[in-house]
Design a protein around this nucleic acid. Sequence first.
DNA 1: CTTTAATGACTGACTAGTCAGTTATTAAAG
DNA 2: CTTTAATAACTGACTAGTCAGTCATTAAAG
Lengths: 219, 219
Amino acid sequence: MPSRPPSAPPSRQRRKEARPQELTEAALALFVEKGYAATRLDEIAARAGVSKGTLYLYFDSKEALFKAVIREGVIPAIEAGEAMLAEQLDDPPALLAAFLNCWWEDIGNTALGGISKLMMSEAGNFPEVARYYDEEVIQRGLALLRTVIQTGIDRGMFRAVDTRYIDTLMIAPLVHLAIWRHSFATCCSHIIDPRAYVEAHIDLVLNGLLTSETRKDNA
Amino acid sequence: MPSRPPSAPPSRQRRKEARPQELTEAALALFVEKGYAATRLDEIAARAGVSKGTLYLYFDSKEALFKAVIREGVIPAIEAGEAMLAEQLDDPPALLAAFLNCWWEDIGNTALGGISKLMMSEAGNFPEVARYYDEEVIQRGLALLRTVIQTGIDRGMFRAVDTRYIDTLMIAPLVHLAIWRHSFATCCSHIIDPRAYVEAHIDLVLNGLLTSETRKDNA
DNA sequence: CTTTAATGACTGACTAGTCAGTTATTAAAG
DNA sequence: CTTTAATAACTGACTAGTCAGTCATTAAAG
């Protein structure tokens, strides 16, 4: 065994840098699958390829690990949402469709979709985390949606619907699908094609929002 | 101890008849609030006003209790759904609106709404129960919805939308609200007015389904 | 290059506490 | 007295969290 590789350490067992993320990833998967209380720390450690003791080198407690899982998973979600905000508001219907499509592709269809289920399940057991999640993720995301729809209404392209809950109504079927895939989908046959589902949803709500003048009927 | 009270036993401690339901009610409330694994049998028994030992007189195990909670809660749901089927199909739009309203009032807004959350959370841990619930509740309910919508399409009142997931899309926002009220609603301010929410949903999807000829625009 | 010392990531056996499930006992009802 | 609903103390399995020790790696010394 001569000289060490110049730059990259080849296959080490020590991964101080990577460990926390490996652990939170493993924890997320298991928390989503089995729930917080039913997941043992030994399992999480094993899935991450370390021992339970190692887990405690990076996280003070099971609860601290849970919080880290949420916070770490949520930061990309916020960033993804804010990135979408950067788009122009020139064409509200197209922007709404794009927003819903992107939400599914970048959030619902990724590990973040599992966080939706996890938070719904555990909100009651972790009120502080739930409040954080509500304020930093849900309310922010809904505000983006509301802006798009309000613009559409202001420009006379969308009907003057009740705007109090229209944002929630837009996203609910997508969240529902994300949750479904982490619950019943794992044990029941009834398979859903996400693409077709999202497309059908967008078709439905766009036609529900558009005024009779703006919509191009296909009936 | 002379003669007993003529008709009603006044205040007994023994309630063989009523116990099972009292226990499943208590269990449902706690399972929904905290999740299955995080709920202790002592708590359930205490909430039902008995000791843990008594619980074992009526249910063999925690899992058996869980199954009883679901089965007992689900029977009324099936019956309520089937009752709605009995209605005529004369006016699909009105029937769809009635169905969604009734679902919220009779299911989402009752203890059954909690079962939605519970099953979503625990489906992975109880695959057999999930399959039972899927077949006996979800699929049956969706079939009813699909019938209504298909009739509307056949009669030219609804657009010829993709019917594969339209049933799920109709009910998803209501299930979402039911789950929300048993999760984030318990710890986050953001209050939702169910009536207005359901009404806004019906308005949106009816306008999304109706053809341009049939819909009366309010824009 | 080889040896020695130091480091710290990692381990797994252990402790303390929790909780599902059991059972010996009590007491009410017939 | 017998039967049965109910209890409360008990047990054993399981798991969150701890800690004394291991070992791969690095760096200094010879």
